[in-house]
Design a binder for these strands. Structure first.
Lengths: 232, 232
DNA sequence: AATATTAATTGTCTTTTTGACAATTAATAT
DNA sequence: ATATTAATTGTCAAAAAGACAATTAATATT
């Protein structure tokens, strides 16, 4: 029988950087690691790739298990494969970033795992190379979000322009002019204005919008340029 | 001693889509596979990730071994990890695309491997999921090249605007207006005009240019928009 | 009831970039 | 001297971007 004789075999894992938005700040979801080494230290959500699943499958499984959510926006970043990145045994990890509606998560909290949202800039030190993964994920999120309409994935079905505005500023860590932002975002044709207003933030209230799902599906790959003076 | 008990282990490989440009057409470099199964079928350049190297290291090693070239432009695409993608044994493969100066390669041909350049649109069927990898690589190359000045990696040190023009048209499979292209490409400030001319293509001759390496290093991450009406 | 307050919403102008168009130039060949 | 061929360069209108602040719609206050 044919075989690949004496080639080394490795563990393969996935790690997910889960982003959320609480209306004011960008956050990431971390868990306390449940196995040695570094047990009880904060880490990304991850797990080993099982024998009958692809890495993408594994990432979805891990997210489902730890957040209860399915069909989450998930994007493969890169593989982390330095020989010594895991001190116990050689493990290669496929890094993903996920965008979830933070409110959906809170409704489905899974008590089996000690998970907690952290402000992106006030997160604890993480194990292994997970700090690097987070840095890479932020960069990739910024890059992608400047060109593709993906940040909607972090907002509820009904959202306001000011909410979207703050989210873009958070992700890009920059100020964006209200008028120019509003013009750009509406000119995409992706937004449908609703009659209802969100009165929680101001006396006047801000109109809710929803995504035009058809156009969103068609334009998910389309180029936009939503962030001025973008530095990548 | 701590260990990750009874987790499955897999082979991890790398596969490289090597792009080159012969002055007229985009090409890819393929090799005849040297091991079973599918021995003597055309495939991408690849190999297993060794115990003391990262996937990036492995990709560079494979390229060095098969082309003689070092310091090649190499970009990680994604991992291919469907459980049954390799019929013999579960193998995950990290896909890379490489951009090389086809002339440098020809000077250093390695006879240990049966390698051959194929027109991108006239390539043979490849083994496993390598056909999909090539399709993904083309897409990613197009995407990246529309935003970043990477196509220079496929040209000699001295090149002409018409050469660059054809290369952009090839990669994007579209016609680009000469005047607009020239304006855009020169406005990047990345090109330095040389006194010498390339007389091989016309009576008038086309001026050679070279890259401004300092600006290139600084702008490798900078956004351009070199292809009009880009569809990704 | 009139006024103050607060955040949401909208508008204009200038500059820059894009895209669509063809004439001119520099060499060699006839 | 002229023809030929590909390289090079120019103009204009439309669209997009960027800089800038006034107006509006609600509630809160006097």
């Amino acid at each position: 029988m044919i075989e690949y004789s004496r080639q080394p075999h490795y563990l393969v894992a996935v790690d997910c950087i889960v982003f959320g938005f609480d209306g004011e700040h960008l956050k990431i979801l971390l868990v306390k690691r449940g196995l040695e080494p570094e047990i009880n230290k904060w880490s990304l959500m991850g797990g080993f790739v099982g024998p009958d699943e692809s890495p993408d499958d594994a990432a979805n499984r891990v997210l489902k298990k730890m957040t209860g959510l399915e069909g989450v926006y998930l994007e493969q970043m890169q593989i982390y494969g330095e020989p010594a990145r895991d001190p116990i045994e050689r493990t290669l990890s496929v890094g993903y970033f996920a965008l979830i509606d933070i409110h959906k998560y809170e409704a489905q909290l899974n008590d089996d795992y000690e998970a907690e949202w952290f402000l992106i800039n006030e997160r604890p030190k993480l194990i292994f190379d997970h700090n690097q993964m987070v840095a890479d994920a932020r960069k990739k999120l910024r890059y992608k979000a400047a060109l593709h309409p993906i940040l909607f994935e972090m907002l509820p079905k009904k959202f306001t322009i000011p909410q979207l505005h703050i989210l873009f500023e958070e992700v890009n860590d920059t100020k964006i002019d209200t008028r120019n932002f509003s013009r750009k975002i509406t000119s995409t044709g992706l937004l449908i204005k609703l009659a209802e207003k969100d009165k929680t933030g101001s006396k006047k209230g801000a109109f809710y919008f929803k995504l035009d799902k058809k156009k969103y599906a068609a334009n998910a790959q389309a180029f936009l340029n939503l962030v001025p003076n973008l530095k990548v």
